[in-house]
Simulated assay, not measured.
Amino acid sequence: MTPLSAGLRAGLARGAIECRQTLTNSQDLMGYVFPSLVFLVVMYLMRDRTVEGTDFSMGAMVLPSVLGMTVMFAGLMTVAQLLIVEREDGTLLRAKAVPNGMQGYLVGKIVTVSGMTVVSMLIILVPGLFMFDGLALGSVGAWATLAWVMVVGLAATMPLGAIIGSLFSSPRQIGLVMFPMMGLIGISGIFYPIGDMPDWLQWIAQVFPMYWLGLGMRSAMLPEALAAVEIGASWRHLETLGVLGVWAVVGVIVAPMVLRRMARRESGSSVQARKLKAMQRVN
């Protein structure tokens, strides 16, 4: 067995175990269920509002946008948080000490995050299908679009999460990332059509993956007529694939370099120093 196949096999097994542990741990599971329930309540409260110029429910339009935002948060924030926590508690150092351990660790995280992203999306999607009428998920093409947007979105965001996670040494510091994330949510057309925003905000939003994830999910789930409220009155599938693909390529190039640098700096003394610092914060 080659080192690559050994790492891949170990990573798949690790990811499957972590997914099972998450799904059977009430505290971890609530971390996925509770935010999803909050979004469902928000969308339900928006059900009687309509998209300007149509009779289509705003709540139904927000549903796919929230799915896109879920992919963004999973790929970026969850990966960053896992990396920071497991770097602090020594999990990363132990993986580094095992043959093919780092390959297995990274593959395991990809499997875990991807699996739990699907679970998070289903928690929102299944009730949403019963809450709202007019969603266009009755064809194989719609489900295929939903799938490829999720896959490409995770490919674009998980390397970014790994880069961010390698830059912070404490889980407390990850809160600094939430402020720009909240700003991106506000300008990316997640809860309100982006076409009503100033042109300069539209251009900023289109630089980042969140807007394109929301657009891609809307293209899969909404009637074709709703494309009229989007920029260019089009779902822009090629542009979605292109922008997310560029982010994925940049991330795949940069993330391994940053992760290798971080792994080289990991040692027993550095892990112990972080544990002592964490204990001092608790006390």
Rank of each mutant, 00 (worst) to 15 (best):
P198D: 10
P198Y: 10
P198V: 13
P198E: 07
P198H: 06
D199E: 15
W200V: 11
W200Y: 14
L201H: 01
Q202G: 11
Q202C: 06
I204M: 11
Q206S: 13
V207T: 12
F208V: 08
F208E: 02
F208Q: 02
Y211N: 03
L213K: 02
G214F: 04
G214Q: 04
L215C: 02
G216N: 04
G216C: 06
R218G: 03
S219W: 13
S219L: 07
S219D: 12
A220H: 01
M221F: 01
M221C: 03
M221W: 01
P223N: 02
A225W: 04
L226Y: 05
L226E: 11
A227M: 10
A227P: 08
A227L: 09
A228H: 12
V229S: 08
E230A: 10
E230T: 07
E230W: 03
I231F: 11
G232Q: 08
G232S: 06
G232K: 09
G232W: 09
S234P: 06
S234C: 04
S234D: 14
W235E: 01
R236C: 11
H237W: 13
L238M: 13
E239C: 08
E239R: 10
T240L: 06
T240D: 03
L241D: 05
G242E: 13
G242N: 12
G242S: 14
V243D: 08
V243A: 08
V243P: 06
L244H: 02
G245V: 02
G245C: 08
V246F: 04
W247H: 09
W247I: 05
A248Q: 03
A248D: 04
V249G: 06
V249L: 14
V250H: 00
V250G: 00
V250N: 00
V250Y: 00
V250Q: 00
I253K: 04
V254R: 10
A255F: 09
P256I: 07
P256F: 07
P256R: 06
M257L: 15
M257I: 13
R260N: 09
R260D: 13
R260W: 09
R260A: 14
R261S: 15
R261G: 09
R261L: 13
R261A: 14
